[in-house]
Design a protein around this nucleic acid. Sequence first.
DNA 1: CTGAAAGCGCTTACAG
DNA 2: CTGAAAGCGCTTACAG
Lengths: 342, 342
Amino acid sequence: MATIGDVARLAGVSRSTVSYALSGKRPISDRVRQRVDDAARELGFTPNAGARALATNQTGVLGLLAEFLPDEFAPAMLQYILGVTDTARDFGYDVLLVSEADGADALQRITSSRLVDGVVLLNVAEDDKRLPVLRAARQPGVLIGMPLDCSGLDVFDLDFEEAGRVMVEHMHELGHRELILASQPAHVVDRGGAYVWRLQRAAEHQAEKRGIRLHAAFAESRQPEVGRTLRALLDAHPDATGLLLNNEAAAAALPWVLAGRSLRAPDDLSVMGRYSDEFARTFSLPYSSIESAPDRLGSMAVRHLVRRIGDDRPDEPHVVRLVSPELVDRGSTGSPGRRVRT
Amino acid sequence: MATIGDVARLAGVSRSTVSYALSGKRPISDRVRQRVDDAARELGFTPNAGARALATNQTGVLGLLAEFLPDEFAPAMLQYILGVTDTARDFGYDVLLVSEADGADALQRITSSRLVDGVVLLNVAEDDKRLPVLRAARQPGVLIGMPLDCSGLDVFDLDFEEAGRVMVEHMHELGHRELILASQPAHVVDRGGAYVWRLQRAAEHQAEKRGIRLHAAFAESRQPEVGRTLRALLDAHPDATGLLLNNEAAAAALPWVLAGRSLRAPDDLSVMGRYSDEFARTFSLPYSSIESAPDRLGSMAVRHLVRRIGDDRPDEPHVVRLVSPELVDRGSTGSPGRRVRT
DNA sequence: CTGAAAGCGCTTACAG
DNA sequence: CTGAAAGCGCTTACAG
């Protein structure tokens, strides 16, 4: 493995000159620069990352903390992850993906060892145990997902409260007066997913305001459980004319549930989900939905993080940026149907 | 940030003693060890990763190269990624996720800078441009996915040839004599996914052997294109009684295609896919399938990689390990149907 | 415009 | 059982 010393020897200059020639951090004569470039190329020289990190206190690596809860399989997460890695690379950063169960521990490990220059937290819980660690770390961090207390944090998220309101309001305008809302699994919600609560609470509040009966419930993240739960919900609320889904697996399962009862959306039941268009098109999810914009959020978060890393002033005011929900109409909502009780 | 020097000072010993006490690499008296442990805890000491890497030539990081092709959205990839990160962590490694377009370049970058101790290559193409880089790197690497030339490489993959044979054979036993095989999108296959070819060729070969007509085609990875393609395939081959899918998006779209024509599986058409059970349950994919075992493959690959990293003998014989395809019966195949032409 | 030297924070022979 | 010192491969003031 060629070191900077090898390059210096071959080019007939000092090691510091090689360093400066390659970094461009001070003027170098054309002749010397040429010799250095040639030597570096000939030897296939790449600076040793550890040595550089030690000398500069910068690793060129961002940490990405994606907590996957047990019994939760979240393919949607990949979209956030790609949004983060792609944008990170645009700025010259690599991404350390940390998926272990104990996120606080992991965060402590990668920040205190200075393995990373900054971190992105995914899947943020309302009272996330990683936040105290992040606040104490010397590296900056950004969240994708909104905790209860955002003080001292940079937060990026879909505006889930607005999403809840939009869903209910949309149904209300169409004339619906009784709705079901199926969210992610209860145990997942308990330990993660602050967004579930925010959407649900806002939906409930809006429903109350409009005189709508809203039945909120949790649904599993896979078959056959989620199908059973959806059927049970339809049975329990025979007069509900609209179904809101904050759960991708439920959106995938619903067609089977409806087909099994010869129900159609929107004729018999109006349906609205919350997932990305990309996801809808990959998995043929046929319902109108609130776009969750994972790639955009990932990209925004990294952009901001990179700016923070380059910034000397850590007391720069923190931001909470909520992306407005956009409704993608796939024709699955209409005026209240005449659902036949089964 | 506390350094080993700070700990040494507080404990009243030398820096080397701190290092040895913490690593346990040589005998330390109980008294000293206790003092060191206390000091380290009090200061919240964590070794600087860059310094340690520089001194030991070991980073504790594995590179994971996941090429995502343009226009390809591969949520299934997340299962491999999690299999890799989880197992890596079990062995004390963190994972650097690299998703950039130019995989060869990325691999060169992370290996020659010694950012990683070893690499896992995902999405391996038959003639993968990353392989020459990997062969030249001083770090070991393992592949998930099988290239044309496996020499000098450790390879882990589903036995896609056997999968192709199993699919055709299963249909043959049920009495089918004309089948359609829909694979991933052509451009994705061209630039990546060796596995698509392997399954297809083996299926074609087996079909020929059994006197079965097999129509192989590519299908897109999202709606509405994939639905159109499936409809066109059914139209083009009205006498085909079985449909094989090596494409998750096609499996998700097929129910809509069949419903649109009032066809049912297996009564009118026998259907068989290739995806993980986890995936099937999350997205309500209702067809019998060959289990792709992504988590198992990811885990196997990392286990092997870790062993290689610890191994002094780089000439240890290389392995090609193919996981046997298992058929998960979801009741979507039967004797040849009486598909009505539309 | 260029070089010699210090220093980043560890680990590990070498010496006792 | 413990310490002083060299060395890993860079970057960057300091000096000229």
